[in-house]
């Protein structure tokens, strides 16, 4: 499953509450699965939360049942290892947005490049959404990325903040390689000048290649 990220606009989807703090990327995808290529039909979906016990229904993609597309969870979600496999597992399992009080920085950067939205709200706001979903599990949350709002039944719409760059990547459904490559000449000129001023910026090539 090597599809590019899907552009993100407005999302209306059921949500799943996984109320745990510090869910690190080792728990999202255990290390032993990271050697797997992502090219299998269901990608990294089968590895999502694989070793976690006592999960609520919908957190892990069960056979037949569609996974929740929005995950509501505790603070510091995605802390720990930089493995992008954690994002692949969520995305491949159909999760399009995670709502939490805070996220690991690297996880958030990885998410934006793979079409997964990280919504940061205050602890009280996340708790209100969790209560709403727990009270009516079938209800759908609505996340509008262009407007930066989240709405749930019985909860006043909430505005969230997101860096313009992440928003841009998500809305376009792109990573930024093509965009940066257009600046290749500017980058090369920058490097040439820096390397002229500080020649140690380039390691001696022959010593880099082979052991002394």
């Amino acid at each position: 499953m090597t599809v590019g990220p899907q552009p993100f606009a407005a999302l209306e989807a059921p949500a799943c509450v996984l109320d745990r703090a510090n869910l690190d990327t080792d728990q999202i995808v255990p290390a032993r699965f990271l050697r797997k290529p992502r090219s299998a039909p269901d990608g990294y979906a089968p590895f999502l939360f694989r070793d976690l016990e006592g999960l609520p229904p919908g957190a892990r993609p069960a056979e037949g049942a569609p996974a929740a597309r929005i995950l509501l969870t505790g603070p510091n979600f995605g802390c720990g290892s930089s493995r992008e496999g954690a994002v692949y597992a969520l995305v491949d399992a159909g999760v399009r947005a995670v709502v939490a009080e805070s996220f690991g920085d690297i996880f958030r950067a990885n998410a934006a490049r793979n079409g997964l939205l990280c919504v940061r709200l205050s602890a009280a706001q996340v708790a209100a959404l969790m209560r709403s979903v727990t009270a009516s599990p079938q209800a759908r949350l609505r996340i509008d990325l262009p407007e930066q709002t989240v709405a749930a039944p019985g909860v006043a719409p909430m505005r969230f903040e997101i860096e313009s760059f992440s928003k841009q990547l998500l809305v376009a459904g792109q990573d930024e390689i093509g965009f940066t490559l257009a600046r290749a000449a500017e980058i090369a000129a920058f490097a040439a000048q820096a390397e002229a001023e500080r020649p140690w910026l380039v390691p001696p090539p022959e010593r880099l290649r082979t052991a002394p």
């Binding site: 930089s82 690297i106 990885n110 990573d175 930024e176 390689i177 490559l181 600046r183 290749a184």
Partner: peptide
């Protein structure tokens, strides 16, 4: 530390 998409970006652009 960076994720795989950023690694690809560094490889392709060194930035």
């Amino acid at each position: 530390g960076i994720g795989a998409s950023e690694v690809a970006h560094v490889l392709a652009t060194q930035t």
